[in-house]
Each structure stands twice: as C-alpha cells, then as structure tokens.
Design a protein around this nucleic acid. Structure first.
Ligand SMILES: [Zn+2]
Ligand SMILES: [Zn+2]
Ligand SMILES: [Zn+2]
Ligand SMILES: [Zn+2]
Lengths: 154, 154
DNA sequence: TTTAAACCCTATAGCGACTTCAGGGTCAAG
DNA sequence: CTTGACCCTGAAGTCGCTATAGGGTTTAAA
C-alpha cells in the first residue's frame, strides 16, 4: 500500500501521515525501489487508532503511550486509567470555561442590534467599558495599585 | 511608564506586551534616552482592551480590527456585529463538540475500573475496537471502499 | 564604593499539530 | 511524448505566546 492509499483508507491526510512518521508516532514503513513508502495492512489499524484518539482530542504524546500499551499486553493498565482521567479533567475544565465564555459573548452580542455609527455601537462601548475595568471579571481592576506609583517619567 | 509598570497595571506579561508590539497590535511607544519603552496612560487602556478581548478568546486579528473601530467613530458597525457573530458561532461549535467529546470519554472511562493486564483493559480494547471501525462515529468505516482497490503492491 | 538584584533591550528558538511551499522524481494513460 | 496524478525531501508558516541567550541600565543595600 502506498501513502495515498493509506490516507484514503483512514481519512488521514498524506502530509499528516508523513508528519506522524517524523515525530515517531508510526513506525518507519518499508520502501519500494523508487523510494515510495510501502505499508502493510497493520498500518491501517495503527493509523485508525491514532485517528480515533485524535477525534477524542488526545495529544500525540498520550496516543503514543496508548499505542505502546497495545503492544505490551502484560503491563498494568494503571497509566491508561490515569491518562484518561487527566484528559477527561482537561476536557471538563475547558467545557466549563467555554460555557462561561458563551454566556459572556451572548450577552455582549445583545448590546447591538443593527448597523449604526461605531461610536454608538453598544458592543464597542461595552468592550471599552470593560477595558476601563467596569464590571469585568477578567481584570484585576487594581488600577489604583498602579496609580499609586504613577510617578514614573511619562 | 516603563514596560514592567504597564505589565503590572494590566496583568499582561512583559514578553507578551513586546510580542503584541512585534505583531502590530499596539503602536510603537516612545523611547527614553536609554532605549527603554516609554508608555503614556492611553497604553493602559489599549492593553486592557486587548486583555479583555483575549479572555473572550478572540484572535489577535479580530482584536486588531476592533481596536481600529474604536479610532474611527464614524464607520458603520456592521463588521463588529459580523465578527462577533462568527466568533460566537465558533465558540458554540466548539462547545457542542466538547460536550459530545465529554460523553464519549466518560463512557470510555467506564470500560475499566481497576488495575489489571493491559490485554484485559476495557479502555484499550474499546480503543482498538473503534480503530477497527466498530460503532465509531469518527471513522468513515468505508474500509470496503479501500479494500475494493486493494491490489496495490503489498 | 562596590556589588547584587531587579529591571530593560534584541534576536532567536521552541511549543503542538499540523499545513503549505519549493523544487524536484516516478509512472500510467492518451 | 506529454499530461496529470502521484510520490519524495526539506524548510517555513500558522497561532499566541514562552523561554533562552547574551547583553546593558538602574537602584538599593552592604
Ligand atoms: Zn473512531
Ligand atoms: Zn453596533
Ligand atoms: Zn476584562
Ligand atoms: Zn484497564
């Protein structure tokens, strides 16, 4: 099998497959006389494993570790569980922050409903107000702390 | 104001401020005789605007566009709305995919409850099965399509 | 007065997971 | 015999920083 066929069989881009090879995620394939990569059937399975894990948003390092486990059946699976727990925690943390973010953006979006002058745009006004520190969670709003030593030359 | 003071006043790292300058997000500040950057009070406002937009997860390109709007009050705000709509759509799309992902990972996590041999680990078995194409949304699972033209040399 | 900490400067490289580009070689069909 | 679909390598670009190397300057204590 050549790289293009493997790409078609797995839905992974050719360039991405070569990249995975470069970073050691897939083992070096045999080569034909003309230098083309020659893959066996097992390459499809390995590549599909990678793709599946990627759609689960795992990092390449984690995937490598999981791949290693599939080839040492006698190892304990504690690390597998741990890896998954950490990944799940990451996903849940991001989910939480994204939910908050969506709320904030949705509220911001309501500040303007139609086309008018930028100076009158509720969205821009809202952003500028937040930049001043008004009702904004992201800023420390300790502007005073910096003002207290404001004597720096200009 | 020197760069460290601006950093403290806004909560943006010094290196990050210099980076923003390099990519043209903040205008070139005046310099003192010794080469140090010298910022005015307006720099705090601009930097806070950037920081606030970053916590809304906007890209630097989008932020630049928004900053431009704040300096031309007579422009129409159509693009502001459009930009926000697109960003909100991106956030919602990611939120949706993250929710699905969380479900999948949580289910996967239930496949193993304790330490045993890797060969018997439900998580690894699940991943391998998915790599084979069983009950997996991420794969096209058109293995047949690729098998139909399987006559490639090895 | 010396010296050490705490600043400041530039230029460059690294991160992750690719994607794209430049500049070629190989191969089957028409 | 040329067109087009493939394949190859190596390097650079993406995004938003972060870190490092290798210096210069200021400030305060010892
Ligand atoms: Zn899958
Ligand atoms: Zn508006
Ligand atoms: Zn804010
Ligand atoms: Zn297990």
């Amino acid at each position: 099998m050549r790289i293009g066929e493997l790409a078609k069989a797995t839905g992974i881009d050719v360039e991405t497959l070569r990249y995975y090879e470069r970073v050691g995620l897939v083992q070096l394939p045999a080569r034909q006389a003309n230098g083309y990569r020659a893959y066996g059937q097992d390459a499809i399975e390995r590549a599909n494993f990678i793709r599946h894990c990627r759609t689960l948003d795992m990092g390449l390092g984690d995937i490598k570790r999981l791949l290693d486990f599939t080839s040492k059946p006698d190892a304990g699976c504690f690390d597998v569980n741990h890896l998954l727990d950490e990944h799940l925690a990451r996903v849940r943390a991001k989910l939480k922050s994204l939910r908050t973010l969506e709320q904030q953006l949705a509220r911001l979006r309501t500040q303007c409903d139609a086309g008018h002058r930028a100076a009158d745009c509720g969205i821009l006004q809202d952003l500028v107000a937040a930049a001043h520190g008004e009702a904004c969670a992201c800023h420390p709003s300790d502007g005073n702390a910096s003002l207290s030593k404001r004597k720096a030359r200009e």
